[in-house]
Structure formats: C-alpha cells, structure tokens
Amino acid sequence: MDFAEEKERQLEEIRATGKMVAPDGTTVAHYIDDYLEYIQNGRTLQRSALFIYKSLKARFGKIRIEKLSKHHLSAFIEDRKREGVQGVTIAGDLSMLSSVLRHCSETRYLNIDPDLADMSRKSIKTEHKLRIKSREVECVPTQSELDAIISQYDGRKRQEIDMPTIIEFALATSMRQSEICRLEIEDLNHEAKTVLIRQRKHPTEKEYNDETVPLLPKAWAIVERVVAGRISGFIFPYNPKSVSTSYTRARQTAGIKRPTRFHDIRHKAISDFFAMGLNVPQVALMSGHKDWQTLKRYTHVKPSDVHVAHGALSDKMEDTKSINENMSVMAAQIAELLAISGK
C-alpha cells in the first residue's frame, strides 16, 4: 500500500470511528518526537524537560505505541524506586508521558488509552507506596548560620567566587543561583533600578520567560559595587553549580549540621520580604512565582512575626491618629487667627 492509499485508509477509519490504528512501525519514540515538534512551535522547552523526554525515549522508545501497557509503566515505577528516585519525580515523568499519549489520542486520533500514564501516576502512592507530594522545605538558614558560612571565606586567597557577595545578593533578591549567574550588565536599568532576568524558570510550565524585576536599595548597591565601571558581560560571571558546591562545602566546614542548600536562601529572602511588609503580588514579582499556592511553600512566617507586624501596624495607626488630631488643632488655630486678623 503506497503513502496516498495509507492516508486515505486512515481518513476513512477516522470518519467511521473517530480513531485510527497507529501506522505500522510507529513507536513511542516516534510519537515523543512528533509531540515535541508539535508543541515547540513558537516556544522553547527547558533543557530539563528535553532531558526527561530523552530518558522516556530510552526507556519506552522501541515499544509500539498501541502496545504500551500498565505493566510497562508499573515496571518503570519500580525500577525508578530501586534507583532511589522520589515519588514526586516519578510522577512528573509520567505526567510528561501522559501529555504525549493525549497528543496521540486527541491530535493524531490514535486508538490508544490516553489515560494510561495518568492512571499509573495515581498508583504510585497506593500500589508502590511512594510519596507523590513534595515535602515542605524546613532547612531555611538562620542569619547566624549564614554568618558562620560567610566567615569561612574570610582571608581566603585566590578565591575565584565572591561567595559573601553572592549570598548577600541572594538574600536581597530571592533569585536562584542560576538566575544570579545569568544577569547581564546590559540588562540593568539605572533609572528604574531594575534588571531583566532572561529565561526565568516558569513555576508551572516547561518553558522560559524573560522578566524585569526591581532591585531594592541593598541589591542595587551590591550591583553598583560589583559592576564597578564595566559596561558589558555578566554581573556575576560564575558557574551556578560551582556556587552551590562552594556554599555546601562552607556549610560543612562551619560545622552546621542542618543540610541547608544555597537554594534555601531563597526561602529566607521571601520570608524576609513579607516581614518587611511587602504584599503577595509584590513578593511574587521579586521571586517569579505566579500564584499564592506556589509561593506559600517558600514562606516561613512564625507566630512572633505576626505579633511584630501587628505591632508595627498599630504604631502606624496611632501615629496617623496623632497626626490627624494635631492637624485638627492646627486648623482650628489657623481659623481663629484668620478670624482675629479679619476683625
């Protein structure tokens, strides 16, 4: 059967049943490639997403698309479990495979089960006894821990990365180390005191977004000090992985037992923004989060913080009340003087 006859057969089958049998020789790998080509029209996937699709091709690629079964996916979950992979990561892999299967069913009209990967993902917790909900991060560094870590860099010669400044900047901005190390001098706006973060990670979609964010006074002062007359290039020309590794080594050398990571500075910074009195939309602009449900994982507000905030608000209200009372007295006095001068 030639190409034209095969296409006509497929169209007739779709008209009759709404679905068609996958063409001979087409595999899971074929349709992963087809899906990627379909969705990347006008958008760029993150390298991490492309890596996962590559891994899925290596695992399932030779299987004919209509032969993919629950048994294949269950074996995949168990293999990943033995490798020590967390349930939330496995669920993410299956979610991406589910997107491919839905594409096959809804866009290519293949007669397959589009819910196969979703059903296997739901079995991770019940049948495979793995957590599929990410744990709340509790290793937010304290200021004393950060001071101890920073002190490990004192007096070091031939220090390639200015880690104290990087840590200070992360606290002032809540940026990830990958974002910090991608900032370019040309993207600074000296009048507005902002910087463009290129290819910023989107919290829910596997794509990049450019986003302009404000640099508060402390962060702007750091940038001015670091740039020091340069007009182009990276503000912090370091490898993000090296930054993370250096932080971890300094933490260990400082004798800090809690496994806080460089990324956890971001949690502290966001909590500090709320303590300053910034609202949710303002903090979301700084951190790059798109909704409160995602952002709240990074907040670590204590009961004492609420008391402090309430006290500050009460003081402000008392000050406002006092100012209003003084203004009323002054207005009355001015009116009395005007009345006297008019006599």
Results as ranks from 00 to 15, higher is better:
residue 4 A to H: 03
residue 13 E to G: 06
residue 22 A to W: 02
residue 24 D to H: 12
residue 24 D to E: 15
residue 25 G to E: 02
residue 28 V to K: 04
residue 29 A to I: 08
residue 33 D to M: 03
residue 40 Q to L: 02
residue 41 N to V: 08
residue 42 G to V: 01
residue 51 F to P: 00
residue 58 A to D: 15
residue 58 A to N: 14
residue 59 R to L: 03
residue 59 R to V: 07
residue 63 I to S: 07
residue 72 H to Y: 11
residue 73 L to K: 12
residue 75 A to T: 12
residue 77 I to W: 00
residue 85 V to H: 10
residue 99 S to V: 06
residue 107 T to D: 15
residue 117 A to F: 10
residue 119 M to A: 15
residue 124 I to D: 04
residue 126 T to C: 06
residue 133 K to T: 07
residue 138 E to A: 07
residue 146 L to Q: 07
residue 146 L to Y: 02
residue 147 D to I: 01
residue 147 D to K: 10
residue 152 Q to K: 08
residue 163 M to T: 00
residue 164 P to A: 02
residue 164 P to H: 02
residue 165 T to F: 01
residue 167 I to H: 06
residue 168 E to N: 11
residue 168 E to Q: 11
residue 171 L to M: 12
residue 173 T to N: 05
residue 175 M to T: 01
residue 175 M to W: 11
residue 176 R to Y: 11
residue 177 Q to Y: 10
residue 180 I to N: 04
residue 183 L to Q: 03
residue 186 E to Y: 03
residue 195 V to I: 15
residue 196 L to V: 02
residue 197 I to M: 13
residue 202 H to D: 13
residue 203 P to E: 13
residue 207 E to F: 11
residue 208 Y to C: 09
residue 209 N to P: 00
residue 210 D to W: 01
residue 210 D to V: 00
residue 211 E to V: 13
residue 212 T to Y: 12
residue 215 L to T: 10
residue 222 I to Q: 10
residue 223 V to L: 10
residue 229 G to K: 14
residue 230 R to T: 09
residue 230 R to H: 13
residue 230 R to Y: 11
residue 231 I to V: 15
residue 231 I to W: 04
residue 236 F to T: 02
residue 240 P to R: 05
residue 242 S to I: 00
residue 242 S to H: 04
residue 243 V to P: 02
residue 248 T to L: 12
residue 250 A to F: 08
residue 250 A to Q: 09
residue 251 R to T: 12
residue 253 T to P: 01
residue 263 H to E: 14
residue 264 D to W: 03
residue 265 I to N: 12
residue 267 H to F: 08
residue 268 K to Q: 14
residue 272 D to Q: 04
residue 274 F to K: 04
residue 275 A to V: 05
residue 283 V to F: 12
residue 284 A to L: 14
residue 285 L to F: 07
residue 286 M to P: 01
residue 291 D to H: 05
residue 291 D to P: 04
residue 296 K to G: 05
residue 298 Y to V: 01
residue 300 H to K: 14
residue 301 V to Y: 05
residue 305 D to Y: 04
residue 307 H to Y: 06
residue 309 A to H: 01
residue 314 S to P: 00
residue 316 K to P: 01
residue 317 M to G: 03
residue 320 T to N: 13
residue 330 M to R: 09
residue 331 A to G: 14
residue 332 A to L: 11
residue 334 I to A: 09
